[in-house]
Simulated scan of single mutants.
Amino acid sequence: MSNTSSSVSEFILHCAIQSDQRSGIISALTIILLTSLFGNLLVISVIIANPHLHAPMYLYIFTLATIDLANSTVLIPKMLSVLLLDSSAVPYGACVLQMFIVFHMEALLLCFMAVDRYIAIVHPLRYHSLITNRTVCVGVLILNIFGIIVILPFLFFVGELSFCRTNILPFCFCDYATMVHISCSDNPKYLSLLSGAVFTIGVFSLGPILFSYSRVALAALKISDEGKRKVFSTCLTHLLVVGLFYVPLMLSYVLPGAGVKLSTEVYNVMVIVGNVLPPTMNPIIYSFRNKEINVCIHRIFTRKRTVLLVKKL
């Protein structure tokens, strides 16, 4: 690319992975992609096909599965094409779209879901009056509007960046902070706003999550031993997913904005773990452990098996 150029039509993903690790990473990403696609598509299909699942909790699960499906299909296939086919060029628009998906508001959705469980377990008699399909839909709408408002400044900032030195991104994905680092724009606003936004959203969403699950855990101490085990198991698994999502992503965004330089390998691992693992685990944690969804899935596969047996006869 010419040194005098200030705008680019595409970015080059330089997915620097050692040759002895490449096959293992390709296998892991393929398994994660297939698991995520199967799990999230199955959850979405089951909820759509069963009217009795059109209830607040399942609307949250449906929204989470939709976000996770978009996340997996935007990020992992491109990583695999870079690793398998050396298809490293990404059009400018597609790169910005990938960045937009990475900035999704799953953090706030996880917060809503934690509050939903808090009200259901700690205030069960008030749950149906406080949490309705209408309130969930309004909440998801507000979540998306807020997400767009938060993301818009960064989309404008990307348009302001000039790339006079290189258009090579030293990672397997498109990322806003990396675009700022390779650009010729030295204005600190580009990264300081990112750190501030991520920190603010992280605190205001993680706080209610921790509060909700701690109150749920305290409420569990007053019920039977079997109920305690079930509630504590649910809390721990939900917090595991929350931790896998929050910790690496918050650190990967906040630290560079605060002036801390991360190595390519560390940054790669942080963003991949935060964006790739939760979409794979969410269907297992939030959906397949749910009795109603399990029953519906069992009916689907037993019905198919019955149809196949009838056709053979």
Rank of each mutant, 00 (worst) to 15 (best):
V241C: 11
D68E: 07
I297W: 01
Y253F: 14
L53P: 06
A94D: 07
L41I: 02
S23C: 01
E160S: 15
G196Y: 15
Y267P: 00
S88E: 03
N294E: 04
E160W: 15
I76W: 04
K230F: 13
R22D: 01
T280C: 09
M179E: 05
A94G: 04
L109D: 04
N290I: 11
L309S: 14
S205P: 04
R303E: 13
I44Y: 02
C15S: 07
I223K: 14
L255C: 10
L169S: 03
R126C: 14
V231H: 14
T302A: 05
S7H: 15
P283Y: 03
V136K: 02
I101G: 00
M99S: 02
G274D: 04
F245Q: 11
D175I: 00
I182R: 03
V115M: 10
S36T: 09
S9C: 01
L130A: 10
G202P: 05
C172Y: 03
V140R: 08
Y60D: 08
P208R: 08
S263Y: 15
P56I: 00
M79K: 06
I285E: 01
S6Q: 15
C235F: 07
A49R: 14
V43P: 00
L240N: 14
I17G: 07
P248I: 10
A220T: 04
Y60W: 14
V247D: 05
R229K: 12
D225M: 14
S183G: 05
F100P: 01
V180R: 09
H54T: 09
I31W: 11
L84D: 06
C172I: 08
C95T: 00
L37H: 06
V310R: 10
N268G: 10
A16L: 06
I12E: 00
H123L: 12
L97R: 03
F11A: 00
V122M: 09
L308W: 12
I32R: 03
V122L: 05
Y190L: 05
K189S: 09
S36Y: 05
D186E: 15
S162Y: 10
N71M: 08
R303A: 09
V295D: 09
I300W: 11
L85M: 08
T66P: 03
I223F: 12
L75V: 02
R134E: 06
G39K: 02
A177S: 11
A120N: 14
I145L: 12
N282F: 02
D116G: 11
L42S: 04
V180W: 09
Y267F: 11
S233N: 12
L42R: 00
F211S: 07
L97D: 03
Y286F: 13
V216I: 15
V96N: 00
P170I: 02
